[in-house]
Design a protein around this nucleic acid. Structure first.
Lengths: 196, 196
DNA sequence: CGAAAAATCTACCGCTCGGTTAGGAGGTGT
DNA sequence: ACACCTCCTAACCGAGCGGTAGATTTTTCG
């Protein structure tokens, strides 16, 4: 019986290590072969164990993928949040774009993982929701520059967010692509709508 | 043996009709339930026939999806090409964005079909290639305005293309979203990098 | 050492997938 | 009446999927 520890989990060291390893290989797999290509058998094989062992550590395949997605996502948002808070309000949208593109450049697999999970998994996920933090930074920046709160910061955020995704996608295809320059160009376009 | 007509196909009327119907329901299916949700059984059921009958008209499932994708794509590029040619060179990038967003607004299923096929199907598809026509319009427009050919029209095109995708994705989630206004905002940002 | 607990393996189940095979209904031309 | 072609169905196949059951090895610890 797959009785598992309940409540405030104190995980064994090896359990921790396995979970971390499984998350790692799942990210690799999803990044390289897409969501559908990350079957339990494939995950197990790359981790050097069997399907059943994988399902000993996670209740379902969906849980594995969810954990992998979460792992990639929290690393990203932590990084970006740090960079954004270090900037003054008027330049936070730029800092947001710069740090996000930078992080994704250094962790391309995480990128694919996040995009794949977004696109495929949860049916109707609102794109606007994903970029709402950016929308708020845009509004605040406009105010800080003496303008009115942008009445359609939502649209600006959606467009810029799409630009970020596109830059990262291009880098995934061509590792030599200069994403830093592309980010600056995107920021340039963003600034054009930011000033009053 | 599935011997099929070879060479310069003269298709029967009913064959034409079935093929068109199958393409139609495939587009619906892919748009609503994603690429993976468009199984042969699902396509057949929605068309009122059996899987085997579907495979009588198309050699493989991939061929059905390819045909559906092609159908959606040619309609789009025809529409856009017309609008672009009607504009003078300096304003063609704007016309491109406007007409593409407009077309996709009127045919939301086609949109999903195209995006889904791009993302999922053919492995490593270069995003830059998809937006290369736009990149050329950008270069030409800069020249027409007396500037130098943009040295990184590629990046501009990638960013703007990502913006288009994002606007359309948002419309798919929220049918009341004002894509026309969003397109104008995107054009505004584009124009900022277009003038010398 | 020896028992309990943790981690894993082997073997299987039911399901769905894309695709194949053999054949039959219905119209058409001779 | 017969053969032919088009369009379709019913039944099946092998592979891969996520998941389960029970035995078995490995680790932990008194």
């Amino acid at each position: 019986m797959t009785r598992k520890r309940e409540g405030t989990a104190e995980l064994t060291l090896i359990e921790r290590a396995r979970r971390a390893q499984l998350i790692e290989v799942t990210i690799e797999l999803v990044a390289d072969r897409g969501y559908g290509g990350a079957s339990l058998a494939a995950i197990a094989e790359r981790a050097g164990i069997t399907k059943a062992a994988v399902l000993y550590h996670f209740p379902t395949k969906a849980a594995v993928v969810r954990a992998a997605h979460q792992h990639a996502l929290t690393a990203l948002v932590g990084d970006v949040a740090g960079a954004v808070e270090a900037a003054d309000v008027a330049h936070r949208p730029a800092a947001y774009v710069r740090s996000m593109v930078g992080h994704l450049r250094e962790h391309p697999r995480h990128t694919r993982m996040i995009i794949e999970a977004m696109v495929h998994d949860d049916g109707d996920h609102d794109p606007a929701a994903r970029w709402r933090p950016l929308a708020e930074l845009v509004s605040a920046a406009r105010v800080a520059r003496g303008g009115s709160a942008d009445i359609d910061a939502r649209t600006t955020a959606i467009i810029v967010g799409g630009g970020i995704d596109a830059i990262v996608a291009e880098q995934l295809h061509d590792p030599d692509y200069d994403t830093a320059a592309a980010a600056e160009r995107l920021i340039e376009m963003l600034e054009a709508t930011l000033s009053p």
